[in-house]
Amino acid sequence: MTLHTLNRAPSNTALLADCLRACSSGDTLLLIEDGVYCALAGQPIAWPAGVTLCALAADVAARGLDSRLASNIAQADDAGFVQLCCEHTRVISWY
């Protein structure tokens, strides 16, 4: 299983598409830095089935997005980020 991190806003459509294309069922996608804007409710993103979605809590809070996240997005703190890396066999950074 793979942990994917994505650090760009959803306006970077090609990056988001490449990231989602690369996801397999059982993978986790952690949205970090400007990637947390992908986690906003109402984003027209076709998330792949079987992929767990998380957003890095400090980046969500920094941008004032705490109450605006879609309901299918969990938050992870920095320790959670490390934990996710341990739980997956490889990590890919999409930037």
């Binding site: 793979t2 294309r21 690369a22 996801c23 397999s24 066999t89 490889r90 990590v91 890919i92």
Partner: peptide, 11 residues
């Protein structure tokens, strides 16, 4: 592409 990634240790 997803399969290719699963077949590698370091990406």
């Amino acid at each position: 592409i997803a399969q290719l990634i699963r077949n590698h240790d370091v990406v």
